[in-house]
Design a protein around this nucleic acid. Structure first.
Length: 802
RNA sequence: GCGGAUGUGGCGGAAUGGCAGACGCAUCAGACUCAAAAUCUGACGGUGGCAACAUCGUGUGGGUUCGACUCCCACCAUCCGCACCA
């Protein structure tokens, strides 16, 4: 009697062996494949089964590539700076340094249970000075290139986290981290000029094998639009107001203008009798949060008392102020065409402003517009352009305006520059020194890193200053240029700084001369496969692309896209909700590993549902894969010594199994890979029972196929078959289509599309023979004239009768 | 409002133009057992029938096709993203 499956014994045995002899040895002779996970922030609450999923997917893929003969770069590290780590530390009264180290140790232990082939020699931690030295170095380089700049401006502010936020971190008006309502705060900020890369970030999306959803989210976020800037002369004054429009074809219908409340000309052009109302409106607008502004459905506004001339028809148009115009998009001022823009229509209706239709469907004017007509059409009431197609005018008029000196052709982006400073302790200090004589001076590269000082009080101040501002002995320094007393910049970098480039450092993590050597960068990068959640679509994934392009521009890298292929795994949900401590629906992997083993949990993580979709966790589901593993074990134990010659059925089944598993795996349809294994195991058990044994070739192929999924089991089965080297030294099995063919096939016979019988015929039967056999089989049902006979080779017969 | 995804048994899901419900969970019945657990075997969409079988059935309504879960049109529901971007 063969011994029964014992996951403790098998998994302990092989994890020890792999510890000493890693299966994924660095081998310069092999082609590389870089498979990367989005690295975790060590948050303290540990991993749940949802975190496991992504790591299992990437490990299966890595081991598959390994078996295909690649040297697989598969590293892991810690994104340990930033708010989550700091908030955890504050809550538990432990210094962030200590809390982070403890959490890393804890999560690392949990991650090792996944049994992924991570190369721990590459491990990095963003809070390690040897790492953040280079995070700071990139900032200094950006500063020198004019891409990092200081600006005082109203930025998004989270009153709970007590720090400024980037646009990307404000989701639906609330702080992405804690859910508090974001407000505006006027602060001196460090900004990164990501907008300088808008065009490349947009165009290069075409190069990427990424989910369309993510590409679309990025391209919408960048938000490119084509249009024109047009100058309106303010009547009786010197100033001109520049507007941006994507609808130059509607210029003749512009009957008023609106400036954003923050527009620099707003007060200047206001007449004395309107001054009080305008000042009041601007003040009230300044108090509104972005959510308030969003939620006010009703348009508000105030008249400045001034007018401007529409440059094409010389009409005088009133200039209004309203907060539906945003200061940071376009020019902060718009020309309003109420007949063809919903918002302008609403505003004009409310304040009784004239509405002039200039685009009409088929050139027929609608007598009384009840809503804006936003479709294309034929231009009317537009002087020399009457009769022109509006779509054509849209493209051609900007150039024409440019020739006539009333505007210019232009493009606009929704993307804003990146607010890069945080008023928090636990981040990379921004390596800048403020000198009264020399101004803003970057810390010399040889003086990096600027170490984050140890402090007692690291709680956020809420004043707009970082807690670092209170550390006098650290703040006070000397100017590297003139030697005079100077002060350090006290803001820190956002969480995203380290994660924007960490994937480069893994392959050269101990280099103290360079961020990464050119040689290693070219050898191991870019990343071939990146696995992670979709939540970073316009955050980390956009920032990383920006950093990579910058590093490419300054010659550090020879490539300009970091991640060639992206896979977004779905979330694991429990009781219909994302797992979270507060909901009390967290499933911990630790107990499951103890009870069922790593291999079973790995397999269930895949079997739970299609990997790209959210899946409901079923506590009982793991029993099914555990039973399956035991069935595989018994199949091998019962037959490993049978020494029988492969029957045609065994050969066919083996090749079909290889074919099915390989194809499903190539398509990353990992849940059906698992069900495929179950099907073929059931089939092989039947065959083995019938034939009193199973051939060695089939068992060997199956062990190798299983290796990426259940590595401990596969190694043990492989060694039970008498092999002395690791199963991971094997090659992924190949199939032969000729050997998969059936000699007999089942053909359903339909009458008028309904299956009435199934006939079994030789696979090489002719169409005629099959049709004859089919008609014989269903002769009793052929009660009418046969209109048509359809035979789809190898698939189906359909007889149409009347 | 705009954009995207999803919709199939009690449940997770499979099938991308060709036998709908693979595979698994749960359930029920049987075997083993003094008994239970574990394990094994079988049944398992609805309706009618002792049965073979018939009939309906993939969110709803239409359409294309010999044939539709699959393709097209319209709609409904749920989830996600964006949201006054001129």
């Amino acid at each position: 009697m063969a011994r029964s499956y014992n996951h403790h014994e098998i998994e302990d045995k092989w994890s020890k062996i792999w510890e000493e002899n890693p299966v994924n040895e660095k081998d310069e002779s092999k082609e590389k494949y870089y498979c990367l996970d989005m690295f975790p922030y060590p948050s303290g609450s540990g991993l749940h089964v949802g975190h496991w999923r992504g790591y299992v997917i990437s490990d299966v893929w890595s081991r598959y590539k390994l078996l295909q003969g690649y040297y697989v770069v598969h590293p892991m590290g810690w994104d340990a700076f930033g708010l989550p780590a700091e908030n955890f530390a504050i809550k538990h009264g432990i210094h962030p340094r200590k809390a982070t180290d403890e959490n890393v140790a804890n999560i690392k232990k949990q991650i090792k249970d996944i049994a992924a082939i991570y190369d721990w020699d590459m491990e990095i931690n963003t809070t390690d000075p040897d790492f953040y030295k280079w995070t700071q170095w990139i900032f200094v380089k950006m500063f020198k290139e004019g891409l990092a700049y200081e600006k005082e401006m109203p930025i998004n502010w989270c009153p709970s986290c007590k720090t400024g936020l980037a646009n990307e971190e404000v989701v639906g008006g609330v702080c992405e981290r804690c859910g508090s309502l974001a407000t505006k705060k006027n602060l001196r900020q460090w900004m990164l000029k990501i907008t300088a890369y808008a065009e490349r970030l947009l165009n290069d999306l075409d190069k990427l094998d990424w989910p369309e959803k993510v590409k679309k989210m990025q391209s919408d976020w960048i938000g490119k639009s084509y249009g024109a800037e047009i100058d309106f002369q303010v009547e009786g004054r010197d100033e001109k107001i520049k507007v941006y429009t994507t609808r130059p074809d509607t210029l003749y219908g512009s009957t008023f203008m609106v400036l954003a409340p923050e527009h620099e000309l707003a007060l200047q052009i206001t007449t004395n009798e309107n001054k009080e109302a305008v000042e009041d409106y601007i003040y009230k607008a300044s108090l509104k949060s972005s959510v308030d502004r969003l939620q006010d459905k009703e348009k508000t506004g105030v008249f400045t008392g001034s007018y401007a001339r529409n440059p094409v028809n010389n009409e005088l148009v009133p200039i209004w102020i309203s907060d539906y115009v945003l200061i940071d998009y376009g020019t902060g001022a718009i020309m309003c065409v109420p007949a063809h823009d919903e918002r302008d229509f609403e505003f004009a209706t409310k304040f009784n402003l004239p509405i002039v239709q200039v685009i009409a469907k088929d050139g027929v004017e609608i007598p009384n517009l009840t809503e804006a007509y936003t479709e294309p059409g034929i231009m009317i009431n537009s002087g020399e352009f009457n009769g022109m197609e509006s779509e054509k005018a849209r493209l051609e008029l900007p150039g024409l305006f440019e020739e006539r000196g009333i505007g210019k052709k232009t493009v606009n982006y929704k993307l804003r520059d990146w607010v890069f400073s945080r008023q928090r302790y636990w981040g990379e200090p921004i390596p800048i020194i403020h000198c009264d004589h020399c101004g803003v001076v970057p810390v010399p590269e040889e003086d990096l890193p600027v170490l984050l000082p140890e402090v007692d009080n690291y709680k956020p101040t809420g004043t707009g200053e970082s807690p670092l501002a209170a550390v006098e002995e650290w703040v006070n320094t000397t100017c590297p240029t003139c030697g005079a007393p100077a002060k350090r910049e006290t803001n820190t970098m956002p969480q995203w700084a380290g994660s924007s480039w960490y994937f480069l450092r893994y392959v050269d993590s101990k280099n103290d001369k360079e961020l990464i050597s050119k040689e290693k960068a070219n050898k191991y990068l870019p990343v071939d496969m990146y696995v992670g959640g979709v939540e970073h679509a316009v955050l980390h994934l956009l920032y990383s692309r920006f950093y990579t392009k910058f590093l490419n521009d300054i010659g550090v890298l020879d490539f300009d896209e970091p991640f060639l292929k992206l896979f977004n795994q779905g979330m694991i949900v429990k009781d219909g909700a994302k797992m979270s401590k507060s909901k009390g629906n967290v499933v911990s992997p630790d107990e499951l590993v103890r009870e069922y083993g790593r291999d079973s949990l790995r397999l269930y993580e895949l079997f739970v549902g299609p990997p790209e979709l959210d899946s409901e966790w079923d506590d009982r589901g793991i029993d099914g894969v555990y039973r399956f593993i035991r069935r595989v074990w018994n199949l091998f134990m019962d037959n490993k010594d049978s020494n029988i010659k492969a029957t045609p059925e065994m050969i066919k089944t083996r090749h079909r199994m290889i074919y099915e598993i390989t194809h499903r795996l190539d398509n990353l349809s990992l849940n059906t890979v698992v069900s495929g294994f179950m099907e073929y195991t059931n089939k092989l058990v039947d065959i083995a029972n019938k034939e009193k044994g199973l051939d060695r070739g089939t068992l060997e192929s199956m062990a190798v196929l299983l290796a990426p999924f259940t590595p401990h089991l596969a190694e043990e089965l492989w060694s039970q078959l008498g092999n002395t080297s690791s199963v991971f030294k094997e090659k992924w099995p190949e199939y032969d289509e000729d050997k998969m063919k059936e000699t007999q096939i089942n053909i359903p016979v339909q009458i008028n599309g309904k299956t009435r019988a199934i006939i079994t015929v030789n696979a090489d039967s002719t169409k005629e023979a099959i049709l004859v056999a089919a008609k014989e089989e269903v002769a009793g049902r052929l009660t009418g004239d046969i209109v048509k006979e359809i035979y789809v080779p190898g698939k189906i017969v359909n007889i149409v009768i009347k």
